[in-house]
């Protein structure tokens, strides 16, 4: 599988240290190659969606950014520091979908406990107020609803004013209104330089809220670009033709052709204007057995990720990654 590179996505904002720099990272678990070589740089203030099916390597990569595990090869830097050092300075926070809370502490105690571990955390009362959990501050965490627990997790994550925030399926279970409010808050923080990397398998959410989408599959980055760039991959149609000794370079040079894939005698051409390509193939080459198929957004992702399932174009049930 090759990476679909899209222009103009990793330009660095002048002078500032990147929020994340992943260089040549692989991670093996025994004979399983979970991550097969990832290079990725995130600039400060970017909101990036980490999109991919379950088992693609999203969680493994995030764990390495958090310093919870070490790469088999390659290196990971967070704000120019080894991940554990960045965490010791309160520069990185993560919000998981489930767990991570003690049921026998109250909401306030949980925030106090977490705040006490950082140098210079935001005052507890202020955090409770901002997160809208002041009224349930004295309630036991075990008695809080799922939504209240999620607000508590966010309050804890924001205590140290992190420069990098990692979110796992952040808006699962939120209604449309909650989702909109959530993302406008995230956007406001990004403008102050906070980088947000969120794992998701919802295309729609990635497209709507991320500045940049990194598509990962089978432990590799298969596409990296803005939502519209990624979507462009899905525009147009694909022509399949039988054409021995096809010259991929000539075909690629045709107007509107985005991608040419030669597989033996078969050639797959993805293009905006497939009529022109078909005309060319039938008149100028020995091509025969033409088939023209439309490709939906979902199909684009499926062909990029090489999977037949797991990616959902819109909200539907799905396990966390």
């Amino acid at each position: 599988m090759t990476q679909t590179s899209l222009s103009g996505t990793s330009g660095s904002s002048a002078g500032a240290v990147p929020a994340v720099r992943i260089s040549g990272v692989t991670k093996d678990f025994g004979s399983v190659h979970a991550v097969r070589g990832i290079d990725l740089t995130l600039d400060q203030g970017e909101i990036v969606a980490f999109l991919g099916p379950n088992g693609a390597g999203k969680t493994t990569t995030i764990d390495m950014v958090l310093g919870l595990s070490h790469p088999t090869s390659g290196s990971v830097e967070v704000l120019g520091l080894p991940p554990r050092h960045a965490i010791a300075r309160g520069l990185v926070s993560a919000v998981m979908q489930t767990g991570g809370l003690l049921k026998d502490l109250t909401v306030r105690e949980t925030v106090q406990y977490t705040a006490s571990l950082f140098a210079g955390a935001t005052p507890v009362d202020e955090v409770l107020r901002t997160a809208g959990i002041e009224s349930i501050a004295d309630r036991k965490v075990g008695k809080c609803s799922g939504g209240e627990q999620q607000r508590l997790r966010f309050a804890m994550a924001l205590l140290s004013d992190p420069a990098l925030l990692l979110l796992d399926e952040p808006t699962t279970g939120m209604d449309v209104e909650g989702r909109r409010a959530f993302w406008s808050a995230i956007r406001a923080d990004a403008e102050k330089g906070r980088t947000v990397l969120f794992a998701t398998h919802y295309l729609e959410e990635a497209d709507q809220y991320a500045d940049r989408i990194v598509l990962i599959s089978h432990g590799r980055i298969v596409a990296d670009g803005t939502g519209s760039q990624i979507k462009a991959l899905a525009a147009g149609r694909t022509i399949r033709a039988t054409l021995p000794d096809a010259d991929a370079d000539v075909l690629s040079a045709l107007a509107g052709v985005e991608n040419v894939d030669v597989r033996g005698d078969a050639v797959y051409i993805h293009a905006k204007d497939t009529d022109e390509v078909a005309r060319y193939l039938l008149t100028q080459t020995a091509a025969h057995d033409l088939e023209i198929t439309a490709r939906g957004l979902e199909d684009a992702f499926l062909s990029l990720t090489g999977d037949d399932h797991d990616i959902t174009p819109t909200d539907s049930e799905g396990a966390s990654a």
């Binding site: 400060q44 300075r89 520069l91 502490l105 006490s116 210079g120 420069a163 330089g193």
Partner: peptide
């Protein structure tokens, strides 16, 4: 798009590996 950046060198590491009376009391 980015209007501000964060300088990581301005952040401190807590003393004693994070050990403090608040957490011990809560425990």
């Amino acid at each position: 798009m980015t209007t501000q950046t964060i300088d990581p060198t301005t952040r401190r590491v807590p003393p004693l590996g994070g050990f403090n009376a608040t957490m011990l009391g809560l425990e």
